[in-house]
Design a protein around this nucleic acid. Sequence first.
RNA 1: GUGACUGUAGCUCAGUUGGUUAGAGCGCUGGCCUGUGAAGCCAGAGGUCGCGGGAUCGAAGCCCGUCAGUCACCCCA
Length: 422
Amino acid sequence: MPSKLAAPRGTQDIFPPQTGRWQELEARIAALARRYGYGEIRTPIFESTDLFVRGVGETSDIVEKEMYTFTDKGGRSMTLRPEWTAPVMRAALQHGLFTQGPQRLYYLGPIFRYERPQAGRYRQSHQFGIECAGYAEPQADAEVISLAWDLLQEYAIGGVTLYLNSIGDKTCRPKYRDALRAHFAPHRESLSADSQRRLERNPLRVLDSKAPEDQALVASAPRLESFLCTDCRAHFEGVKLALEAAGVPYTVDARIVRGLDYYTRTVFEFISDALGAQNTLCAGGRYDQLVGSLGGPDVPAVGFALGLERFLWAIESAGTSEEARREGVQAIAIGSQALQALLPLVTGLRRKGAGPVFIDYGDRKLLAQLKIADRNNARYALILGENELAAGSIVLRDLVTRTDRPLPFGKDTLEALGELKG
RNA sequence: GUGACUGUAGCUCAGUUGGUUAGAGCGCUGGCCUGUGAAGCCAGAGGUCGCGGGAUCGAAGCCCGUCAGUCACCCCA
């Protein structure tokens, strides 16, 4: 393989028919977002490095080791977007959107993270997500979750569980953090190396450790639930109530803590059992402090991000994707004279936009061209050879029923073919 | 960043204890079956056996390194 000219590690080239599946998913996402009243936002693919350091958090893994950072010719430090929320909030803030009341925005596009690729994880991947900004009310949390749920339902993706938790806010979380430290510190030597590191940086993350030696201590750790302040508790109850009203089933899981620093109160993940180790299809939460930390007013907000590669993977393993149907026409000319005569009809059919029109220019025999029609998944073949030219006719062959129908070949042929669709 | 496994034609893979010009299927190109499709027959193109070094009379098979891919860890969409 010419490794020198291969796509960079962790990126992929996408071809037909796979690009068709992407287009279909993107179209359905746009329609769904619109039904919920969300409008699309597009932001630059790179931003000031500082935006992510301040927005996502200095101690997050994204900022610590996963950013694609470069210096531009003006000596500014720039970073390829590793996540959308900070840029979206930056853009809304910059253009004064928050002075106009609550905002419902969705986005769809690539993100970049410098990680070792594996199943369901890439260095360039694509996310769909929404941000609902301006509402502190729990109904907004449920709305966001409900939209994600609907998308999963549309594709009949089974084996998905919604895990829900509240991680408190700036009044109650510090107390819980201290309690966790107090709980783990005496046993720090028996914790896994990773967890010992987590204990210093972000004790909450010890809770979702997978290391077997940590499990006993994790199980006996104090529950965040008992530390939630009354406001957070009320909010969490409100989210549950609104989810029940929306008919969205959930499972409360105290171990959901999320990796980004900006989350407050509600956090959630949609986990699929059809994927590999990277089984989070969609995740998000509330981030009431982010806009303020970017230098804006206090704007409460909630959102999620969904990984499109993982979503397409889940669709594939759910077997929800449809077989490619035969569509369009293969125009077949036998001989250069017939080709010349057929071209206007081909152009006419293409301009009518009824479906794909294929044609082979290679001076091949009928048999060879029918094989090409098969490969193109054409529904019909239009055959023009010497016999037809002499008779002033053209043969329309239905490639599914394998039946021929002669039609007069002339000015009216295009109209006669009007009913051809798929 | 760590670990395990893998790396032979466009794709999927053979290649037997190291031994002469490296194979198959599919795909591609051309031909045949005197113009009717997932077919058959014939022929052809296409490979510095990931790359570099080493030991050997001799390496696609062994040793070392390196790069890439896959999966997993960390972490996350």
